[in-house]
């Protein structure tokens, strides 16, 4: 009897523990979200420092933008080529293979350019940003700056954040442009479509603001969010090698998810009338 009572108590306690744990992790998640927002405001305030020190920004544009360029160009070329091939096989049955360029260009400008660029960016530059800032935290460099009366958010975080926001639309534009060239190579050089038709079809169907403009807005938003996540995860990481690894993973995972969710929301806002 007593044994049963004891067992009952154990089960009850285990359940209570579980509920407690759930509450704790919810609170932790909420406070992280709060910290992330306060942090963002600090970073935005810190951006003013860029005006006096453009050198910091240039350095970060190099490591965030230029060093991501190769992967973007290669990916863009092949995505464009694959798109052209797929579009050709889908459209040739309807005798509409002249529309290959429309399909390639529209999907690149509206979706693939901004989204794939952002995903690659999160994996390449975002994780590097997190690791770099996290390592500076772990080696007390951020603390050291604070004690030298230098604001690390202004000096370390803000340039990286701004570089991410600036780089993303540029990278997306390069991705799309290279993708269109890849599509051209396959459609015109390989499949023998007419070069004039390729360009004129695209020109007649692609709207400057509707498609190119909205695509650029998308990648600007992605750049903002991915850079924010990346620098926050670095700045907020637990300063151990394990914590650093987790933070880097979180940047890629949260960053990618945020991109895909935001892409849906933005698409719904932009293209539904």
């Amino acid at each position: 009897m007593i044994y049963l009572l004891d067992r009952g108590k154990d089960v009850l306690n285990a359940q209570l523990d579980r509920i407690q744990g759930l509450g704790r992790s919810t609170l932790a998640a909420l406070s992280r979200l709060g910290r992330a927002n306060v942090f963002l405001i600090d970073v935005l305030v810190g951006l003013t420092g860029m005006l006096i020190r453009p050198g910091l920004l240039i350095k970060q544009l190099f490591s965030v933008g230029v060093q991501t360029l190769v992967i973007i160009v290669v990916a863009g070329l092949f995505v464009g080529m694959v798109m052209a091939l797929q579009a050709y096989y889908a459209l040739v049955d309807f005798g509409a293979e002249d529309s290959v360029s429309v399909m390639v260009v529209l999907s690149l400008l509206r979706e693939l350019g901004p989204v794939i660029t952002a995903l690659l960016f999160a994996g390449r530059a975002g994780s590097a940003l997190t690791a770099e800032i996290g390592l500076m935290k772990a080696t007390e460099q951020l603390s050291g700056m604070e004690m030298m009366a230098v604001n690390p958010i202004e000096r370390v975080v803000a340039p990286r954040f701004l570089a991410g926001v600036i780089s993303m639309p540029l990278l997306a534009a390069i991705f799309s442009a290279v993708g269109v060239l890849g599509g051209y190579l396959v459609a015109v050089e390989l499949l023998g479509l007419d070069a004039g038709a390729f360009w004129s079809q695209a020109q007649s169907k692609v709207e400057l603001f509707e498609d190119l403009g909205n695509g650029m807005i998308k990648s600007l938003v992605f750049g903002f969010v991915v850079s924010w996540i990346a620098v926050f995860e670095g700045y907020d990481c637990i300063p151990t090698s394990e914590g650093l690894g987790q933070a880097t993973t979180r940047t890629v995972v949260y960053g990618s998810l945020a991109i895909l969710v935001l892409d849906f929301v933005l698409t719904a806002l932009m293209f539904s009338k």
Binding site: L69, L109, A173, L212
Partner: peptide, 18 residues
């Protein structure tokens, strides 16, 4: 890099959009 990005935008605007 920045010039390439702007050139890409320009190319997209001129040659594939209306």
């Amino acid at each position: 890099f920045v010039a390439a990005g702007l050139a890409a935008l320009f190319m997209l605007a001129m040659s594939v959009s209306n």
